[in-house]
């Protein structure tokens, strides 16, 4: 919107762009009428509430061990049973939303910012810059992402900031490719030519002129990546490279307890796995709703 307004002021003779406001209003309307979006929002919102208010509403201390009551089945006191240290699984699942809903969005934002910069630069400049960066992106995308992440985590050492950076880095080429494609389709439009004729520098054209016009695909890509990020965080925790104990993180809980499933202690893993699955589904539905509204 900013770009169009600027162009209008700079070139009084050009065609005024007046359809933006109604288009945006129509998109919001489409979004709020989407059942998919609302189901996703409710699920994600539930877990977000757990992440924010969980520590104050859980019935028992999620960190307190009780070695005389380990691996207890669900009952009136422990709704989801107890784990190998006698900790209350219900409280841990509720509070466990906090880590994953902090790390995954932050990692996605890091990946989106970096990917947007890469996509803008390669898409706008093209030529040798595009060719070189695109080849590097292809190499990165060709490697299994989890392996790349593990290698970087081994080098950095497992910690929460490291996990955020690693997932952000892994997502950068993926988001960068999407942004590049969108920028390439904008690059030859009149408003970009006009800005160049005005003598605007490349940074201004990329971030002030083009970026607002490629925001919808970036937003869709970001929400899609958020779902993957949740899964990624859980996977890294499961492999022992993510969040450190005694966090009630869901991936870590599955990692710590999957060995006892064969003994019949399903509750130690099932609820954490179900929580992870429901959050991923919720975020994906949210993404699908946003995608439908922006492209509908």
């Amino acid at each position: 919107m900013t770009a169009q307004t600027t162009m209008l002021d700079a070139e009084p003779g050009s065609t005024p762009i007046v359809f933006e406001e109604p288009r945006i209003r129509s998109r919001w309307s489409l979004l709020f009428r989407s059942g998919t979006f609302w189901v996703g929002a409710i699920i994600t919102g539930f877990w977000a509430c757990c992440a924010i208010f969980g520590p104050w509403v859980v019935p028992l201390d999620p960190f307190a061990d009780d070695l005389m009551n380990t691996l207890g089945p669900p009952d009136a006191l422990h709704w989801f049973g107890t784990d190998q240290l006698g900790r209350d699984v219900f409280s841990r699942v509720i509070v466990g939303a906090r880590d994953i809903l902090t790390i995954a969005p932050l990692a996605t934002i890091v990946g989106t910012i970096c990917g947007t910069i890469v996509g803008l630069v390669t898409g706008y400049f093209g030529g040798i810059v595009d060719m070189l960066v695109s080849r590097v992106i292809e190499v990165m995308v060709a490697l299994p992402l989890i392996v790349v992440a593990l290698l970087v985590l081994v080098a950095l050492g497992p910690s929460t900031p490291a996990v955020i950076v690693v997932i952000g880095l892994v997502f950068t080429p993926l988001i960068g490719r999407t942004v590049r494609a969108a920028v390439q389709s904008e690059r030859d439009l009149d408003y970009v030519d006009a800005a160049q004729i005005r003598g605007e520098n490349a940074l201004h054209i990329m971030f002030v002129e083009i970026l607002p016009n490629v925001l919808p695909p970036i937003l869709v890509e970001m929400t899609v990546r958020l779902g993957y990020a949740i899964f990624f965080v859980a996977s890294l925790s499961f492999l022992g490279f993510g969040i450190q104990p005694p966090s009630p993180d869901w991936g870590l809980a599955i990692s710590e307890n999957y060995g006892v499933i064969a003994g019949g202690y399903w509750w130690t893993v099932a609820f954490a796995a179900g929580a992870t699955g429901s959050l991923v589904v919720g975020v994906n539905l949210l993404a699908e709703g946003i995608h439908g509204a922006l492209t509908g």
Binding site: L71, Q84, G259, V260, A262, G263, G264, Y265
Partner: peptide, 8 residues
């Protein structure tokens, strides 16, 4: 730890 299935 993890061996509960066969211990019982």
């Amino acid at each position: 730890q993890g061996g509960q299935a066969i211990l019982s």
